[in-house]
């Protein structure tokens, strides 16, 4: 019915740029780009490079060639590598369990109506705020074979008569670095769990008290079940941090004595940079991936919304 002359003249076709900016998908792409570039450059590329290096015999100053699984075969027969795996597992397990126990205990204490509550909460964060290298140096001094304050106190009290060789004996060194890691990791666990505790309404505790629950029953039957989702997140992160720890060990012991405190991360660095064997170092780092994946899967299933969490509030 409409004849051409009744049509309004068509608006000039917008420019390509304009169309991109005005379309929903185009704009989304544009906004996503910086983050994508960042992730590609600083995450995907190094990770890919690391995996690739693990399959080569690259050394510092010499491009290597592809050698397949040879690095891994070599590592499988390397007792130092297996020692570092053992150390890492021990370090992660013991430190995580301690951090969880002590962190939860602290969180429960801080969740009460204490005097100077905010002051204590701030204090708790200190170990987390201090740069790791700095706190590691402090621990290095605390663990000094001659001037250790712990040895000094124990000697003054007459409990021991010679300084403790904290970092010189394999097992002493292992427990010492674990203690330092626990000290450093508690704030994260405690503050996160405290945040979780504060989401639990006080009235639930009161209702349980009226229902006849003792303090212990209120903790195990009300507080703990409601806290599990947060515990799963917090402990996953804590395990990941601990498993990949590097700074503390590097400053305190450099993996010594006789590799007794080498973690996979420090051994990887040791072999790759000072040792020059980039390929082998990368292979050790790649060997950590299955363990980390296992931890992430654990959290994935632990974090799945439980049945009671579904529905509206």
């Amino acid at each position: 019915m409409t004849s051409p002359d009744t049509l309004t003249p068509a608006a000039p076709r917008p420019s390509r740029w304009r169309r991109l900016v005005e379309s929903r998908g185009g704009l989304g792409l544009l906004f996503m780009l910086p983050a994508a570039v960042f992730l590609l450059c600083f995450l995907t590329y190094p990770l890919g490079l690391g995996v690739w290096l693990g399959f080569t015999d690259t050394r510092i100053g010499r491009t290597g060639s592809f050698i397949g699984l040879e690095n891994y075969q070599w590592l499988a027969d390397d007792p130092v590598f297996w020692l570092s795996v053992f150390n890492t597992m021990l370090y992660t397990t013991v430190a995580s369990v301690l951090k969880f126990g002590l962190g939860l205990w602290l969180a429960l204490l801080l969740n009460r109506n204490l005097r100077f509550k905010n002051f204590f909460r701030a204090i708790i964060l200190l170990p987390w705020v201090v740069p790791t290298v700095l706190s590691a140096l402090a621990f290095w001094w605390i663990y000094d074979s001659q001037f250790s304050i712990i040895s000094w106190v124990l000697m003054s009290l007459g409990i021991i008569d010679a300084p403790i060789n904290f970092l010189g004996d394999p097992w002493n060194a292992r427990w010492s670095v674990i203690a330092a890691n626990v000290w450093r990791g508690i704030p994260f666990v405690a503050i996160s769990l405290l945040a979780g505790l504060q989401t639990i309404p006080q009235s639930l505790n009161e209702a349980a008290a009226i229902d006849g629950a003792t303090a212990w029953q209120r903790f195990t039957k009300v507080t703990l079940p409601l806290l599990t989702p947060i515990i799963a997140v917090v402990m996953t992160f804590s395990v990941l941090f601990t498993f990949t720890d590097f700074q503390l060990i590097y400053v305190l012991t450099r993996g010594g004595p006789v590799n007794a405190t080498h973690l996979m991360a420090t051994l990887s660095f040791q072999r790759a940079i000072p040792g020059g064997q980039l390929g082998e170092g990368a292979a050790i780092a790649v060997a950590m991936i299955p363990f980390l994946l296992a931890a992430i899967l654990f959290s994935f299933f632990g974090l799945q919304r439980r049945k009671w969490q579904q529905g509206n509030d």
């Binding site: 009235s203 009161e206 209702a207 009226i210």
Partner: peptide, 13 residues
């Protein structure tokens, strides 16, 4: 005694 709370205080889990 038994008490009914304003926010009901039902155990969500």
């Amino acid at each position: 005694i038994a008490m009914v709370f304003q926010n009901y205080a039902l155990y969500p889990h």
